[in-house]
Amino acid sequence: MLKREEVQHVAHLARLELTEEEEIQFTEQLADILAYVEQLKELDTEGVEPTFHVLDMELPTRPDEVELYPDIEGILANAPDRADRFFKVPRILEGED
């Protein structure tokens, strides 16, 4: 059974702030989803290769050629805060993960 602490942990890893009601609600819903997926274990997968990707296609590659992106200012304009050409972010606390 999924514990509420696990939901809190996963929410923290995803930087999601949940209310107490949401934690209770998500614990139930996630438990249901996990139980549903558990059904797959009933299948006999002996000799079946694992699937890592749903599309059976070759990996496309590109040649190693440099092409400068023409609108860098457009990207920088997305920064919530800037210092000249830099993105400016709040200081990083030591020990924070």
């Binding site: 050629e65 440099v66 092409e67 400068l68 992106y69 990207i75 050409r85």
Partner: peptide, 23 residues
């Protein structure tokens, strides 16, 4: 390599900040 692993921006060292970036 000359360009990045998944995009065409340059990998050259020492460019001014945020010049070799792309979406």
């Amino acid at each position: 390599t000359r360009s990045k692993i998944f995009s065409s921006s340059a990998t050259a060292f020492g460019a001014p900040p945020n010049t070799n970036i792309d979406p």
